[in-house]
Every structure is written in C-alpha cells, then in structure tokens.
Computed example of a mutant assay.
Amino acid sequence: MAASELQHEQALKRFLDERPELRHELDHLNPLLAQAKGETAAQYRDERLHEAFEAEAERQGLFAWELTLQLTAATTQDYEAQRLEVHREVAEMAGMDWLEYCDLYGIEP
C-alpha cells in the first residue's frame, strides 16, 4: 500500500506549512524561469516544491514516499507499520528474500 496521491498532497501541504521561508521563495519565483522551461508558473512552482520535498527526504535518509507517510501518519507506530508494509511490497516485487531486503536497507524486520 504505497502512499496515495491524496496522502502525498497532504504531506506536501504540511511540509510547506512547516517551512514559511520555502513558501515565500516559491511564491516569488521568477516567471521567466518557468517560461524558459516551457512551463506555467504553477507547474514550475510545483516542480520546485517536489524537488525541495525530495531533497528533505534524502537529507533525512528516507525515500520520498517514507517522508509522505511520516508527515501523514497519525502516530509513529502507524508510520512504522505503513512503512514496513510498503517495504514488504517492494521486496516481493523485486523477488527478494525479506531478511535479505531488510539487511540491504537497514530495516529491523
């Protein structure tokens, strides 16, 4: 059960709410930069927001979907349960043994 689009949108909102300086920066982007990329100002802003979100996840040593779960889970236990569930799904899709996968990604099974 990977993070849903709704969860991701909620996580982005919370992420931005917790970073007023980032919101200010995103609200004052140069529209010529968007135009140069062939994007609307909104598309360009969204792209910068997603880049900041991914960078924060990386800074914390997380995948972006883990940061999404972290920002939207009701409790720490809820986050850990959802995180393990997704990692199990990824291990299955990769055809990897669960303990091998845990060892590779430093996960406590």
Rank of each mutant, 00 (worst) to 15 (best):
D97M: 02
N30W: 00
A42V: 05
T40V: 02
W98I: 11
A73Q: 07
Q7E: 15
E5T: 12
F63V: 09
A52T: 06
Q60A: 14
Q43L: 06
E25W: 09
Q82T: 03
Y101D: 13
H24E: 10
R14T: 07
R48P: 01
L67P: 10
L16C: 05
V86T: 11
Y105R: 14
Q77A: 15
L99Q: 15
R88G: 07
M1E: 12
Y44H: 00
L71E: 04
A11L: 06
A73R: 05
A34V: 00
L84E: 02
R14E: 02
A52M: 06
E21T: 05
D46T: 02
N30L: 00
Q10I: 03
M1D: 14
E56V: 07
E21P: 01
V90R: 14
M1Q: 12
A3F: 10
Q43D: 13
A36K: 08
D103H: 08
R83C: 09
E21D: 13
Q7I: 06
E9L: 14
E100C: 05
G106K: 03
E100R: 12
Y101M: 11
E54P: 01
D46A: 06
L32I: 01
G61L: 04
L29T: 00
G61F: 04
R59F: 08
I107G: 07
Q70E: 12
E18I: 05
T72Y: 02
E47N: 01
L12H: 05
G61K: 09
V90T: 12
Q60K: 15
Y101L: 10
E18N: 13
A42H: 04
E108M: 05
H28E: 02
A94M: 13
L99K: 14
L26F: 01
Q7N: 08
L16A: 13
P20S: 13
A91Q: 09
N30C: 00
L104C: 04
H8Y: 11
D17T: 10
N30T: 00
E25M: 10
Q7K: 11
M1I: 08
E80I: 06
E108S: 10
L16N: 05
Y44L: 00
P109G: 10
W65P: 10
D103E: 12
H8R: 15
A11H: 08
E85W: 02
H28N: 13
A2L: 14
A52Y: 08
L12E: 14
L32K: 03
L69Q: 08
Q43K: 04
R59N: 10
S4V: 06
Y79M: 11
L104P: 01
P20V: 10
R88Q: 15
E9R: 15
R23C: 07
A94L: 15
G106D: 11
E80S: 01
R14P: 01
M93N: 14
E39V: 00
R23P: 04
R83L: 10
A36V: 01
G38I: 00
L22I: 03
Q43H: 09
Q77W: 09
D103V: 02
E56D: 14
L49N: 01
L62V: 12
E18Q: 15
Q7M: 15
M96I: 03
R88T: 05
G106R: 04
Y79F: 15
L12K: 14
M1P: 13
T40D: 02
C102H: 07
P109I: 02
H28A: 03
R45S: 00
E56S: 11
T75N: 04
H24T: 11
E9M: 13
L16R: 13
T76C: 03
G95C: 03
S4C: 09
L49K: 01
E21G: 07
A73Y: 07
R48Q: 14
